[in-house]
Amino acid sequence: MVAKLAESIVDTLEKEKIITAQLREHYIYACITLIERIVTILSLLCISIGMGNVVISFIFLGFFKLLRSRTGGYHAKNFSQCYLLSLIICIAVVCICSRLQGQCIYKGICIMFFMAFFVIFIIGTVNHPNVCFDESELRILKRWTRIILIVETSVIIGGSVLGDMNRKYIMAMMLAIILCAVLMVLAKIIGQEVNRGE
């Protein structure tokens, strides 16, 4: 359905002579990607509103997306799987952050967060076969990954130490970093990585 909608949009652009036939496949791919992102974001927004925790969702997604776009890691085989996993993760994060704020849960998330920090800092970026960065691009991505990781970690530690930030927001930030690390390790375990020398 998404592909047909994308093709319809590209057909219209072609008829109006806004694009050329040579770039048709590129525009179809771009439209599919854009439609999938819009559907996912709107769905996550609806779930967040329905659960009454839009702020937690946006904090989590902001931290996650900023880091994930550089760390790489596991990718689902198709949009349906990715979409379903995204919804499940969003619901789980909102539930954990809003309902499970006990000291034991918080300490467990803190321990996992510090483990995730070291995993991401050491690995840097997982080079996915669909992207296949060259050595120079990979070095730049790893540097930016580590910078963003340090900035996000500073926000988390600062919010925790100063005590001005709500614990559920700190947990959402930590869960974003934990998820990035899990996806990186999963990609390495199942072989979703192009190995290049540094």
Score class of each variant (00 low, 15 high):
92 A>G: 12
143 R>Q: 08
154 S>W: 13
167 R>K: 15
92 A>L: 09
197 G>R: 15
133 F>D: 02
27 Y>L: 02
24 R>P: 03
52 G>K: 06
20 T>N: 09
88 I>E: 13
192 Q>H: 04
164 D>A: 11
60 F>Y: 15
139 R>F: 03
58 F>H: 11
95 C>L: 14
115 M>I: 04
190 I>F: 13
56 I>S: 06
192 Q>Y: 00
28 I>L: 05
128 H>K: 09
185 V>F: 07
9 I>Y: 05
10 V>C: 05
190 I>N: 10
89 I>H: 07
85 L>K: 15
187 A>W: 04
1 M>Q: 11
164 D>I: 15
131 V>K: 13
151 V>D: 10
183 L>P: 05
31 C>T: 01
131 V>S: 08
21 A>P: 01
118 F>E: 07
126 V>S: 05
48 S>K: 02
16 E>P: 08
13 L>F: 04
44 L>A: 03
106 Y>Q: 14
127 N>W: 03
62 G>Y: 10
53 N>W: 10
138 L>A: 02
28 I>E: 02
40 T>A: 00
45 L>A: 06
163 G>I: 14
56 I>V: 09
21 A>I: 06
70 R>H: 15
161 V>Q: 11
129 P>D: 01
39 V>L: 03
195 N>F: 15
129 P>G: 03
3 A>D: 13
98 S>C: 09
61 L>E: 11
28 I>S: 01
45 L>Q: 04
116 A>D: 05
36 E>G: 02
1 M>C: 11
136 S>I: 01
189 I>P: 06
18 I>G: 03
134 D>W: 06
81 Q>I: 15
135 E>K: 03
24 R>K: 00
140 I>P: 01
59 I>K: 03
59 I>N: 06
60 F>P: 00
60 F>H: 14
21 A>R: 02
72 G>E: 02
9 I>R: 09
180 C>M: 04
117 F>T: 01
62 G>W: 09
164 D>W: 10
8 S>I: 02
176 A>V: 06
6 A>W: 00
181 A>V: 09
32 I>D: 00
87 L>R: 07
